[in-house]
C-alpha cells in the first residue's frame, strides 16, 4: 500500500485505479496523469485493460479503488453523465452514434443537457426555445465543419462511410467542450491515408483548442506522431511510462508486444 498523497498540477490525475471482474483483475493500481494541453497515449497488448481504464475514468464502471481527479476535483464514484458534464468527453472503440438522429442532431445532443429552456417552452415551441435550438444547431454546424463534415448535416449517421463516422463521433465529443477528451482507438479501421488525415485533424484541433487528449491506440504511426507522453499497460498493470522514444526502446515493452511493435 502506498498511501502517498501527491499534490500535483496535472489536469487529469488518475491514481492507483483498480477494478476486478470476478477473479479477473482487469486494471490493477494504474496511475497516469495528463497536464493541460498534453497529448497522452496509452498503449498495450490486447486485453491489457486500456478500455477498462477509460471506462473507469468516465464512470461507466465504479473503480474498486483509486481516484480520478479533474482539475483537483474528485470524480470517481460519480455518475457517468455527471463526469461527462464535469468536462471529460470520449469516443468509443466500436463507434457509438445515435442512429435515430441526423448527423447535426447527434452533435446537438452535446448542448441539450444545458439548453436554456424548460419543458413547457419545449412542448409549446416558444420563441426562447426556437432561438436556443437555432443557436445550438449553428454551434453544432461549426463542429461539423471543423472535422470536415460540413454539408452532411441532414444525413443519417449510419449512412456515412466508416471514416466519417469516426469523425462525427469526434465532433460530438468535442461539442461537449471537454477539458479532457478520451479517444479509444480513434484510428481503428481507417486506411493508411485516412490515418494520416486523422493525425492532421487531431493536430489541427489540438492547436485550436489546446485541450488535453488521452488516447488508446495500436497504430504506432498515430502513437509516435501525436503523443507527448506514453503509458504502457500490460495485464492491467503499468509497465512503463515516459516520452515516446524512451518507451519505444524499453526492453520490457518490446517483450510485452513480442515484436508486434516493429
Amino acid at each position: 500500500m502506498n498511501a502517498i498523497t501527491t499534490t500535483s498540477c496535472g489536469l487529469l490525475e488518475v491514481s492507483s485505479l483498480s477494478k476486478s471482474f470476478g477473479g479477473v483483475r482487469a486494471v490493477c493500481d494504474f496511475s497516469f496523469n495528463a497536464q493541460p494541453g498534453e497529448i497522452v497515449g496509452i498503449i498495450g497488448p490486447n486485453g491489457a485493460g486500456k478500455t477498462t481504464a477509460f471506462n473507469l475514468v468516465t464512470g461507466v464502471y465504479a473503480p474498486d479503488k483509486g481516484s480520478v481527479k479533474l482539475d483537483g476535483v474528485e470524480l470517481s464514484g460519480l455518475r457517468q453523465d455527471v463526469i461527462a458534464r464535469a468536462g471529460i468527453g470520449r469516443t468509443f472503440q466500436n463507434i457509438r452514434l445515435f442512429k435515430g438522429l441526423t448527423v447535426l442532431e447527434n452533435v446537438m445532443t452535446a448542448s441539450d443537457p444545458y439548453a436554456p429552456y424548460g419543458f413547457f417552452s419545449a412542448i409549446l415551441a416558444l420563441p426562447g426555445k426556437r432561438k436556443a435550438d437555432r443557436e445550438a444547431a449553428d454551434k453544432a454546424r461549426e463542429y461539423l465543419n471543423m472535422v470536415g463534415l460540413g454539408g452532411m448535416e441532414d444525413a443519417r449517421p449510419e449512412s456515412l462511410p466508416y471514416g466519417l463516422q469516426r469523425k462525427l463521433e469526434l465532433a460530438r465529443a468535442l461539442a461537449i467542450r471537454p477539458k479532457v477528451i478520451l479517444l479509444d482507438e480513434p484510428a481503428a479501421g481507417l486506411n493508411p491515408s485516412e490515418v494520416r488525415d486523422f493525425i492532421e485533424l487531431v493536430r489541427r484541433l489540438h492547436e485550436r483548442f489546446n485541450f488535453t487528449i488521452v488516447f488508446i491506440e495500436h497504430r504506432m504511426e498515430v502513437v509516435m506522431n501525436l503523443s507527448h507522453k506514453l503509458f504502457v499497460l500490460s495485464f492491467g498493470k503499468l509497465l512503463a511510462s515516459g516520452d515516446p522514444e524512451t518507451v519505444r526502446r524499453n526492453p520490457e515493452v518490446i517483450e510485452a508486444y513480442i515484436g508486434e511493435e516493429e
Binding site: T58, G59, V60, R79, Q80, D81, A84, R85, G89, R90, F92, R96, L97, F98, K99, G100, L101, E105, N106, M108, T109, A110, D112, P113, A115, Y117, F119, A122, I123, A125, K129, D133, A136, R172, A173, I176
Partner: peptide, 24 residues
C-alpha cells in the same frame, strides 16, 4: 423536436453513449 426529444432518441439507441454526452 426539442432537446427532450433529441436526448430521448439518443438514449434510445445507446444509453452508454448518451451518458457519455452528459445526458441524465
Amino acid at each position: 423536436n426539442s432537446r427532450y426529444g433529441r436526448q430521448s432518441l439518443a438514449l434510445r439507441t445507446d444509453e452508454l453513449a448518451a451518458r457519455s454526452m452528459g445526458i441524465d
